[in-house]
Simulated assay, not measured.
Amino acid sequence: MSNIQLIIEEKAADIGNFLVGRLLPFKEKRAVGPFVFIDHMGPAKLKDYQNLDVPPHPHIGLSTLTYLFEGAIMHRDSLGTELEIQPGAVNWMTAGKGVVHSERTPEYLRTTDKSLHGLQIWVALPKNLENCEPSFTHVEAKEIPNWKQDKVYFKLIAGEAFGRTSPVPVHSPLYFIEIKSNEKASLNIGKELYGDVAMYILEGSISNDGNRYENKQILIAKESSLCAFEMAENTTLYLFGGEAFPEEHFIYWNFVHTDKNVIEKAKEDWKAQRFPKVPNETQWVPLPEVKGFK
């Protein structure tokens, strides 16, 4: 059986103060189900004078999901949220008609050596919710469904799969799953999945149909029902996917929407600083000069 439709290598992208690995979108694959953007941050070792500082920037038409393996990020947004995210927890922010947020190293870590490693994800909203009121939800690590099946450890970080539901309040049928194994293991989990599905190998490797795939590769499946593979020892991977939307979603910078006119208005509103402000923040990220839509 060969179920691999497309193999994508992690691609370096500059977010200002360090490089991240861009997992999605790519020219060959603009979205997987409702997932339209994924960055792999780190692993980065930051000195006592190095910090993550992403000043206030806007979003529309999407939800953001932040999931850390190491380190900490202080999230502040225009809803008044000020909350630190720790490894294993989930920050889920739904932008809807518009929200602004910043991401920075917490104050108590700014003068010490530190690590930062995790995933930042954008999930497009269904057409009927693109202009909803913005909201923010934090889910602690202990609330994330996790279980062991044979030799393999699972976490359902968001969505529904395996007869379980994550408490992260998603807006369409999707799943974001962590799978770990310290030993070699064979999995056939296609019957648990639906819609589009992609696999990101964080560490270790997997084998499928006699081929071996290493870390920092993304594998796009032809069909979710055929998702079967072998994991090498000490492997960690992430499955993400779900039902694709019937409408095309356009991306310009941090804006996602089915209507390009709404994105154009968001661009002008940000340039004129008509978006809501983040309390206790005075900086802001200028609108970049980007040609066209993704």
Results as ranks from 00 to 15, higher is better:
residue 292 G to R: 00
residue 33 G to N: 11
residue 208 N to K: 14
residue 240 F to G: 07
residue 45 K to I: 15
residue 246 P to W: 13
residue 156 L to W: 08
residue 82 E to W: 07
residue 63 S to Y: 00
residue 187 L to V: 10
residue 12 A to V: 05
residue 100 V to C: 08
residue 205 S to G: 08
residue 78 S to E: 08
residue 132 C to M: 12
residue 251 I to L: 11
residue 275 F to Q: 11
residue 33 G to E: 07
residue 214 E to T: 09
residue 218 I to K: 05
residue 253 W to V: 05
residue 165 T to V: 15
residue 145 P to V: 13
residue 170 V to N: 03
residue 276 P to W: 05
residue 26 F to G: 00
residue 157 I to G: 03
residue 10 E to C: 09
residue 169 P to S: 08
residue 188 N to M: 05
residue 62 L to A: 08
residue 186 S to Q: 09
residue 38 I to M: 14
residue 170 V to C: 02
residue 100 V to R: 04
residue 281 E to Y: 05
residue 9 E to R: 06
residue 111 T to M: 09
residue 125 L to M: 08
residue 275 F to R: 02
residue 162 F to H: 02
residue 14 D to R: 10
residue 20 V to E: 02
residue 66 T to Q: 01
residue 191 K to Q: 14
residue 3 N to R: 14
residue 199 M to F: 05
residue 228 A to V: 01
residue 207 S to P: 04
residue 293 F to S: 02
residue 126 P to M: 07
residue 159 G to W: 04
residue 284 W to A: 06
residue 144 I to A: 11
residue 80 G to A: 08
residue 50 Q to A: 09
residue 227 C to F: 15
residue 134 P to K: 11
residue 55 P to M: 03
residue 232 A to G: 08
residue 136 F to C: 01
residue 165 T to D: 00
residue 138 H to C: 02
residue 93 M to T: 13
residue 114 K to C: 09
residue 75 H to P: 03
residue 155 K to L: 14
residue 23 L to Q: 14
residue 277 K to E: 15
residue 108 Y to Q: 05
residue 83 L to T: 10
residue 73 I to S: 03
residue 184 K to Y: 09
residue 67 Y to M: 12
residue 31 A to W: 13
residue 244 A to K: 15
residue 281 E to N: 04
residue 287 L to H: 06
residue 280 N to P: 00
residue 176 F to W: 13
residue 226 L to C: 06
residue 120 Q to L: 10
residue 191 K to M: 07
residue 133 E to N: 09
residue 130 E to N: 02
residue 287 L to R: 07
residue 141 A to F: 02
residue 67 Y to V: 07
residue 260 K to T: 15
residue 127 K to I: 14
residue 288 P to A: 12
residue 11 K to D: 00
residue 66 T to G: 05
residue 130 E to F: 10
